[in-house]
Amino acid sequence: MIMSGAVAGAGAPVQVTGRGRRSSLTRSRIRAAWLFIAPSLIVVALIAGWPLARTIWFSFTDASLDALGDYAFIGLENYLAHDDGGWFGILAEPDWWHSVWNTLWFTAVSVSLETVLGMVVALILNAAFPGRGLMRAIILIPWAIPTIVSAKMWNWMLHDQFGVINDLLLRLGLIAAPVPWTANADTALWAAVMVDVWKHTSFMALLILAALQMLPQDIYEAAKVDGVSPVRVFVRVTLPLIKPALLVAVIFRSLDALRVFDLIYVLTSNAKETASMSVYARQQLVDFQEVGLGSAAATLIFLIIALVVVITLAAGRVRLGEDPR
């Protein structure tokens, strides 16, 4: 050290002072930051925050769609109420629980299938072969087609009398008589899963592919030199390495599947037996004009999805803590 102490009298405050703490560059940048995000924040608050708050508020009222301004606070009655020896409200409604079950089943089955198939597609696209770019574009097409359009296309293909699927299966001898796929509650959800898998496998595949392409190639070369079997390499090396990306993809897909609306609404014609949570809530809200009940259902959906998000975020934090990287 040279000359330390020599400048003690130079008026240099050793302790941080309010004014001297930040240069005007930092100050102007922070001011700019708030100015720059303000418009987005205001818009998001207006079109997401406020409507959400109002929906939650409506869930405690008896509002109806034709007279939205005219309502009374009724507490938790939309959720659950005891009256005349019977239970009322959404939580006592078998149709609601049925829609919850439908949604959970749909989410679990379709996301699982998409993960497995997406992995297969990703592994194929990760191999070098002529036409890989074209193949990648081809699998993107189902993803880009509007859900309504895909639902209609599949509706037509699954038509009980004139549908190509029944025709194909009859020709192959797999079924004895035409199956009314979308009209039958048992098969309708399977049909919805099929369309969802058709549409979203590519999303899963592309996210997995991105993770695969970030893996260091030398690991594979080393494994090849050591003569490790490809299956073993996949299970012991590839899977653990892409697990974080895979989890992200699964979470995004699950959150998306939990709020499914378009597909089920169009494919199964708004039927009660196959309704998803979102379909049920909209039915109460718009078709039956019961804004209070519909809002209660919507609030529950929000809570369920928020719960899933919180759990995954918490789990994610724990994992991050353990991750040495």
């Binding site: 406020w50 979102s278 809530a281 809200l285 609030t299 929000f302």
Partner: peptide, 13 residues
């Protein structure tokens, strides 16, 4: 956000 969760509030807005 599930779209349906903002539906009533958005309708009012």
């Amino acid at each position: 956000f599930p779209q349906v969760a903002v539906l009533a509030g958005m309708f009012e807005l």
